[in-house]
Design a protein around this nucleic acid. Structure first.
Lengths: 138, 138
DNA sequence: ATAGCTTATGCAACTAAATTGCATTTATAA
DNA sequence: TTATAAATGCAATTTAGTTGCATAAGCTAT
C-alpha cells in the first residue's frame, strides 16, 4: 500500500506518523490476518519489542485494531473494518482460528448472530470465535 | 459436595484420586463460575502452583473442564456440563464475562446459535463470549 | 525554515503466567 | 503388601507484557 495512504489513515486517527506505525499498519493491511506482537517482531525486526507493544496499544485505543479473544494466551489483533473510534468499536464479525496453521482471521462478511441472555445480564460486546481448518490447510 | 461423589467423578474420567484433584473439583462445583489457576491458588493455598496448573491440564484432557477463550491473557476454565471425553467436548453454551467484577461464567442454558462460514472453512468448535455486566454487579 | 513543546522510541529492569526437569511421595492394580 | 506408574513439590526457565527514564523524533506556531 502506498505510504501516503498509510499516513492518511494514521492522521485520520490522530496518531503521529512514525516509521514503526506505518510499517505495522502496512503489515496488517498486507497480511489480512490477525497478528500478535510476536508476529510483528518476527517480520519487522527493526523495532524494539516494547515499541511494538505500544504501537498495538495505540492502534487499539485509536480504533485501528481490535483485540481478538482466544484461548492461546497470546494477545492477537485484527484490523478494524469500518471507522472505529476509541469508544465505539462497531465490528460484529466472526473470527476464525485455524487449528492447523494457528492463524486467526476476521470473517468480515459473517455477522455475529443476535443472542439473548438471562434476565439481569447486560450485554456490551459479543465475540464469536470459530476453531477449525482454514481453506489453505484443508 | 460429598467426597464420594467427587471421587466417582474422577474415577469416571480415569484420573487417580488425590487431595488436590478432589479439592479443585469441589471448588469448581461449589463456585459455579469459571476459575483460573490464580483463583485456585488463592483459595486452596495448600498446593503448589505447578500442581494446580497440572491439575487443570489433566481435567482439560479428561473432559472435566473446558478452556474459555477470553482477551484477558489469563487462562480460565469452566466445568464441562455433560460427560465430555478428551476428544469430544460437546458443550455449546454461551460464556459471559462481567466487565465489573471480572468473573466469567457459563450460561449453560444458552446455546450458541448455528452459524455458517465461507466455503472452504471447516468448523470444529464454536465459542461465543459475551462481555457485559452480570446481575450481581448491575 | 525553525524553535519549542509534546510524543514516540529504545534500553534495562521488572512482573506475571505458564512450562520443564528431576527427586520424592503417593495411588492403585496385581 | 509390594511393584509400578503417576502425582506432587521445588527450583529454574521461558514467554508475554509492563514500567521508568533518557534520548530522539514529529508536529505546531511562529
Amino acid at each position: 500500500m502506498p505510504s501516503d495512504e498509510l499516513k492518511s489513515i494514521l492522521k485520520k486517527h490522530k496518531l503521529r506518523i512514525t516509521d514503526c506505525r506505518t510499517d505495522v499498519l502496512n503489515l496488517f493491511i498486507q497480511k489480512g490476518s490477525a497478528l500478535s506482537q510476536g508476529d510483528l517482531e518476527h517480520q519487522l525486526g527493526a523495532y524494539d519489542r516494547v515499541t511494538l507493544y505500544r504501537t498495538l496499544n495505540s492502534f487499539l485505543q485509536a480504533g485501528i485494531l481490535h483485540k481478538i479473544p482466544n484461548a492461546t494466551g497470546v494477545a492477537t489483533y485484527g484490523l478494524c473494518h469500518h471507522t472505529c473510534s476509541p469508544n465505539d468499536h462497531n465490528h460484529n464479525h466472526i473470527h476464525f482460528k485455524c487449528n492447523a496453521c494457528g492463524q486467526i482471521e476476521c470473517l468480515e462478511d459473517k455477522a455475529v448472530p443476535q443472542i439473548s441472555v438471562p434476565k439481569g445480564y447486560q450485554i456490551e460486546v459479543v465475540n464469536m470465535i470459530v476453531d477449525g481448518i482454514c481453506p489453505s490447510c484443508a
